[in-house]
Amino acid sequence: MTPTIIALVVFLFPLAYSPGPGNMFFAANGARFGLRATLPANAGYHVATWVVAMVIGFGALKVFEAYPHLFDVLKLIGSGYVLWLAIKLFRAGGVGDIGDARPAGFTSGVVLLLFNPKAYVILLLMFSQFTDPAASDKTATVLLIASIFTLNNLGAFLVWTAVGDRLARRFRDTQQARGINRVFGLLLAGVAVWMVVA
Rank of each mutant, 00 (worst) to 15 (best):
T49L: 05
A119R: 00
S108K: 08
F26Y: 14
D72C: 09
V197S: 03
V159A: 07
V51W: 07
A41Q: 00
G20S: 12
A53F: 00
D165Q: 07
G57D: 08
I77R: 13
M54Y: 10
W160A: 04
F58M: 05
G57Q: 03
G57T: 02
M24C: 12
I148Q: 10
G164V: 10
L113N: 09
W194T: 07
G93A: 06
S128Y: 04
L151H: 08
P133N: 10
G30D: 01
A7H: 07
A104P: 13
A16S: 13
G96L: 03
R172M: 05
T2E: 10
P40C: 04
W84I: 06
W194S: 14
R102T: 12
T174Q: 12
L123S: 07
G57M: 00
A41K: 01
L39N: 05
F115G: 12
Q129E: 08
R102Y: 10
L89F: 11
N42P: 11
A41P: 06
G80L: 04
L15M: 08
N116H: 09
F157V: 15
A140H: 15
L143P: 02
A192E: 00
Q175V: 10
W84E: 14
A140P: 09
V196Q: 03
L35I: 01
T49F: 06
A156P: 08
F33M: 09
G185E: 04
L89S: 14
I145E: 12
A156M: 00
R178G: 13
L144T: 13
F184Y: 13
V63I: 15
L188P: 15
F26C: 12
G22F: 04
G34N: 06
A101H: 08
A189R: 13
V9D: 15
I98K: 05
N152R: 03
G80Y: 03
D165Y: 09
A162Y: 11
R166C: 04
N23T: 00
R32V: 04
T49P: 02
N116G: 11
A104G: 11
V63H: 08
T141G: 09
A146Q: 04
Y67G: 05
F90L: 01
A101K: 09
L83F: 01
A168R: 03
L187R: 10
A189Y: 15
W50S: 14
R36E: 13
S79Y: 04
V73K: 03
F25S: 13
P117G: 06
N153R: 10
T139N: 14
V95L: 10
A48P: 13
A48W: 00
M54C: 12
A41D: 05
D72W: 13
V163R: 07
N181W: 06
G179I: 01
Y45S: 02
P40E: 02
F26T: 11
R36H: 15
A28E: 11
